[in-house]
Amino acid sequence: MRYIRPLSIEDAVGELARAVGPAAILAGGSDLLVRMKGGFIEPELIVDIKAINGLSDIQETADGFRIGAAVPCAVLGENKALRKAWPGVVEAAKLIGSKQVQGRCTIVGNLCNASPAADSVPALVAAGAKAVIAGPSGKRTIAVESVPTGPGRTSLAKGEIVEAILLDKRAPNSGDAYQRFIPRTEMDIAVVSAGVNLTLDEHGVIKAARVALGAAAPTVLLVAEAAQVLVGSKLDEATLERLAKVCSGACRPIDDKRGTIEFRRKVAGVLAKRVAATAYERAGGK
């Protein structure tokens, strides 16, 4: 096995593209090292991306935010401007693991590990975040929901690295939120989760919405029908009930030791209501 720490994205892409055996990208290592130790993967090459120029900072640009792929979640939580603009994304990232894990884990690692229960992903999908990908044939920018394709699988080609996550500049009267259900209060994997992002008009009527569910299907679900239910409303009781119904119906969950299909469906609806209410409040509604 070889460990390298390239200084440029071009070198990192080149090394990955040339690799003959299995190769792995190392960000915070909180999934990768656990899988290596468990013997689930045996990479011949490890490309540590943390020394690559430009990957370790959060930039506020004219278009919004650019979060480098090597920025640990603890740093996201310390960024006031990001917390103010995208509180739902930040609260989701802050739920990952313990203080110890927070010091290392990244939202890009969370996305590329492609667990259906990844906490930051529903929030990123609801936020309409994009992933900037560098590869052997240049750069491309895609919606984050196009990265995971199934449990543990992504659409990334050999040699491709997610370089950054882009979040739009916030429109006025906008707010987002994320919650998960876990049987404990800390350090657990989401049984089911929901992220909601709303923009209101000046009268508090929802004019744009995105609703995403986690751990409810093989990949995060973007529930377009749920957004349609919300748009045009002021989040009255009847709208919330319809939202819950649509979200429960959209789930395609599995039965496992952490929850049954029936339980996950029910809780998806309950969480969607609660999260929508928080997002609405953050957007200045009521």
Binding site: Y3, R5, L26, G28, G29, S30, L33, V34, K37, G38, I46, D48, K50, P72, A74, G97, S98, K99, Q100, V101, G103, R104, M187
Partner: peptide, 27 residues
Amino acid sequence: CGTGDCGACSVIVDNRLVCSCLVLGAE
């Protein structure tokens, strides 16, 4: 545990608390 769950291996790296079982020596 060796898997980031117990914190018995905690150290501070560049002012960040981390599990040393989930950091490579090379890093």
